[in-house]
Design a binder for these strands. Structure first.
Length: 279
DNA sequence: CACAGCACCTGCCCGC
DNA sequence: TGCGGGCAGGTGCTGT
């Protein structure tokens, strides 16, 4: 489910509940959750026990807890992952994959139906980033994000623009929904060759990314309560503010032409055939 | 090296 | 009611 705005909502929730806390213990309940961890579940549990949580960080869709001693717990939510703050008394969720025990009654649960998500621990590199995140581009909310550099990377690609927008090494945090939304906003056809775009057009697309994702973030923040830290696909942004994604047959809110759906990269692309013309 | 395709999972919804 | 196919917001491995 989660793209950048949803992951940022989770980051803020975890920051509020976890910073300053000590991990009394950790349980990893599904082997796939530890699949990227050298040493597997046992190593993951062992490295987390006794650590204190100093900060909660994010780049694109990658989230990590900064622990004491320069270590980290990387949490990738995949397609269906959630982080939930719970108490020891609650009934285990069917898809509970791992949890942190926080000393008192509170716990942090990793619930993930499809198991595309994972946890991984290790030592932060010299940029204070987990090694698995080092290849990921800075996202558009990163103060060090250089738009001109991102635009240059976009127009250097010999692929269709939508594929490029989903490439986390070019611009991070964008997934299938926001790619379609930003292409609609910038009036660009998803199959436009990236190399045919001007730097100015690429910069327009980056501005659209920032605008679309900050609107989503503002809306996502409303469906959040004190004891529930999550990714909520049903509320807020999704049901109300989409112009293209999932809108097959719905009149384009700019020109009235019905939105169409096309298969692309083994997934769906939605766009307005009148406003987003392939040149 | 750059790029395209597919595998990795579970569950739901639809049509037959 | 049951079954099969298609679909889901991500990523990384593999082959060309």
């Amino acid at each position: 489910m989660p793209e950048l705005p949803e992951v940022e909502v989770v980051r803020r929730g975890l920051e509020r509940h976890l910073v300053g806390r000590r991990i009394a213990g950790a349980e990893v309940l599904h082997p796939r959750t530890a699949r990227r961890q050298a040493g597997g579940s046992a190593e993951l549990q062992g490295r987390l026990e006794g650590k204190s949580i100093e900060a909660v960080c994010r780049r694109g869709k990658y989230l990590w807890l900064h622990l004491d001693g320069g270590e980290y717990l990387l949490v990738h939510l995949g397609m269906s992952g959630q982080m939930l703050i719970k108490t020891a008394a609650e009934d285990p969720h069917k898809h509970l994959r791992a949890r942190l025990l926080l000393g008192d009654e509170s716990q942090a649960w990793f619930v993930d139906q499809r198991t595309f998500g994972y946890w991984e621990t290790g030592e932060l590199n010299s940029d204070s980033v987990p090694p698995l995140v080092a290849h990921v581009a800075r996202d558009v909310f990163d103060p060090h994000c250089d738009d001109a550099e991102v635009a240059a990377r976009i127009v250097a690609k010999r692929s269709e623009i939508k594929r490029v927008l989903l490439d986390q090494t070019v611009i991070s945090g964008v997934g299938n929904i926001y790619a379609d939304e930003m292409l609609w906003a910038a009036q660009v056809h998803p199959r436009t060759p990236a190399s045919s775009m001007s730097v100015a057009e690429a910069l327009t697309l980056i501005d659209a990314a920032r605008a679309v994702m900050s609107d989503a973030l503002a809306a996502g923040g409303t469906s959040f309560d004190a004891l529930y830290v999550n990714v909520n696909g049903e509320s807020g942004y999704f049901s109300r503010s989409l112009h293209a994604y999932g809108q097959t047959g719905v009149p384009c809110s700019r020109c009235g032409t019905p939105i169409v759906r096309e298969k692309f990269m083994n997934r769906s692309s939605y766009f307005c055939p009148a406003c987003q013309v392939l040149r």
